[in-house]
């Protein structure tokens, strides 16, 4: 019987299709996260009240910020779980090696995040629409101006933030799978401070990405960080046996 000599990219392509068939819950998770976020958003992200003598002005900001934030969490957690043991076992039944697996995972993350981005943008509008349906137009509504370049930037920024959260999740997931003790350490030293401190140490990190005024630099920073995270992941999980 003659041997087949598969090339890496054809296997990556097949593995991506396989993952697309087998990770349906990822998109159910996205729907649930965004529905919860939309419910929160309906009550307004922020509001301010002002009084001018006999006039009271109450301004409520309806935005998709909650949806964005929840989708970032979704991107992070699906990526933590993407390369988990069960999934590696399921990969291993068919044709795979660690390169093709990581590459297929990256392709999956990119496509899933594209879908995530589209739904973040549409959900942001949806929230505003629902707000009008429920509460009616009983006041003045000021819409932000939506221009095509502005929307494009909204798409790009959202997408690359999701990529950033995903790649960090992918790295953290792979580190956690190195052993029970390491998993405990990650939870203790990463999860602990996030919950029990004011997280002021994260400010420079957010500033590094968030204060970037050039879109090109922003994209480059995120791409470099993500590539670094995924590179580290392949290194960390290099000798991992599936058991």
């Amino acid at each position: 019987m003659s041997l087949s000599h598969p090339d890496l990219w054809s296997v990556v392509n097949k593995q991506f299709k396989y993952k697309w068939m087998s990770y349906k819950s990822v998109f159910q998770g996205l729907m649930i996260a965004q529905i919860i976020a939309m419910v929160f958003s309906l009550f307004g992200v922020a509001s301010s009240s002002m009084g001018f003598g006999f006039i009271d002005l109450n301004i409520q900001y309806i935005t998709g910020d909650f949806v964005f934030f929840f989708t970032c969490l979704w991107a992070f957690f699906i990526s933590v779980a993407l390369d988990r043991n069960e999934n590696r076992l399921a990969d291993q039944i068919f044709v795979t090696n660690s390169w093709s697996r990581h590459l297929a995972n990256v392709v999956f993350i990119v496509i899933a995040n594209m879908i995530g981005t589209i739904t973040v943008v549409t959900a942001s509008f949806f929230v505003k629409m629902i707000h009008i349906w429920i509460f009616g137009i009983d006041g003045f509504i000021f819409f932000g101006e939506y221009t095509l370049p502005g929307m494009l930037i909204f798409f790009i920024i959202t997408f690359f933030y999701l990529i950033l959260f995903s790649s960090l999740g992918y790295l953290i997931g792979s580190i956690m799978r190195q052993g029970k003790l390491i998993k405990f350490g990650v939870v203790l030293f990463v999860g602990g401070p996030l919950i029990f401190t004011d997280n002021s140490y994260l400010i420079p990190l957010f500033q590094f990405f968030g204060d970037e005024s050039s879109v090109i630099w922003f994209i480059l920073k995120i791409l470099l960080t993500s590539m670094l995270a995924i590179g580290l992941t392949t290194l960390v999980s290099r000798r991992l046996e599936v058991q």
Binding site: S4, H5, P6, M21, Y23, K24, E86, N87, L89, V95
Partner: peptide, 22 residues
Amino acid sequence: NNLKLSANTIYVDDQMQFSLEM
């Protein structure tokens, strides 16, 4: 970690763990 081997080999046992969603 060998792609050629993986493409030409199948390992069958009673522990095969398929995707729970397929």
